[in-house]
């Protein structure tokens, strides 16, 4: 219940924050945004950073905007803001995901960027980030760089964010009038995290065939990943319920873990079921997006 003692820094700007981190010995500092993942870990003393750099007040890292055909979501945007954001109406997957993530209190404080940066293997946003092919923008003492979602998750709780870097925002392609995306999840009964969570995006061509699909998977085990086998199977097909279901029958790139709540076989089954359900809803949304 009680974290180990730490130093606490409240940088006044992003630049300031980057500078504070640059001054730290590697591995000793942790970045505090909403704190919904970090503080529980510290309370159980599973983490004991010497320094907490609280970026939670940097408003420059918050908010949703649109520029040159892309949507920009600030790292400090809360789940609750994503649940209700009118700017994201074209991608209902955001509200849908935020609505099944954690609980209202967690959504009020937890942030989009924090969830991606922590990369918990059962977090929800990584699946959406992958399915919508987001780009993460990072800022460090050596400047800015971008990382594509498919390169972002490098393992369990590890990402491409380097020591001293801060995730500032994420960009996504805006809706194009022929795409839809959806998220389907099985909650672990106690924690509410994903036993399996699948975000799917489908883009249709003028003939109603699947021009392209992307499928992001979380909760199964290891790092969140793209189910490319499903994407390839669906490419160019005229989708029907049975085609969607068959495309999800086997996902060889999944390497499911065993735990109290789900063994590997069951996780594979949940992946099949929720991939089908996410694709089905994504398809409906893609069809209804077409003017």
């Amino acid at each position: 219940m009680i974290p180990a003692a730490f130093e606490y820094a409240v940088p006044r700007s992003l630049e300031d924050a980057v500078a504070v981190l640059a001054d730290c010995e590697a591995g000793t500092a942790a970045i505090l945004a909403g704190g919904m993942s970090l503080l529980p870990t510290m309370k159980l003393r599973l983490a004991a950073p010497a320094l907490l750099v609280d970026i939670g007040r940097l408003r420059e890292l918050a908010g949703i905007s649109r520029a040159s055909g892309r949507l920009r979501i600030g790292a400090l945007t809360t789940h609750a803001e994503l649940l209700a954001a009118p700017e994201l109406a074209e991608w209902r997957v955001f509200a849908e995901t935020a609505g099944v993530l954690g609980d209202p209190q967690v959504r009020n404080r937890g942030t989009f960027g924090g969830s991606l940066a922590q990369a918990h293997p059962a977090a929800d946003w990584p699946a959406v980030f992958l399915a919508l092919r987001g780009v993460a923008c990072l800022r460090g003492s050596r400047g800015e760089r971008s990382v594509r979602s498919e390169d972002f998750f490098t393992g369990v709780l590890t990402t491409a964010i380097a020591e001293g870097e801060i995730l500032t925002h994420v960009t996504f392609p805006a809706g194009d009038g022929r795409s839809g995306a959806a998220y389907s999840k099985m909650r672990q009964q106690a924690s509410g995290m994903a036993l399996a969570g699948v975000a799917a995006r489908i883009t249709l061509d003028t003939a109603g065939r699947i021009e392209e699909s992307t499928v992001g998977v979380t909760g199964i085990g290891g790092a969140p990943f793209r189910a490319r086998s499903i994407e390839q199977r669906l490419s160019g097909l005229l989708p029907t319920p049975s085609i969607l279901e068959e495309s999800c029958a086997d996902v060889p790139e999944a390497d499911p873990t065993n735990d109290l709540h789900a063994d590997a076989d069951y996780r594979r089954q949940l992946l099949r079921v929720h991939a089908t359900r996410a694709l089905t809803r994504a398809l409906e949304r893609a069809r209804s997006a077409i003017p």
């Binding site: 219940m1 606490y8 409240v10 505090l32 704190g35 919904m36 503080l39 529980p40 309370k43 609280d54 939670g56 609750a80 209202p104 209190q105 967690v106 009020n108 404080r109």
Partner: peptide, 15 residues
């Protein structure tokens, strides 16, 4: 906290 429900066990007093 500023009008929104939060879990005060997961907020530092300094926050």
């Amino acid at each position: 906290l500023d009008g929104r429900a939060v879990k005060s066990c997961t907020v530092l007093a300094v926050q």
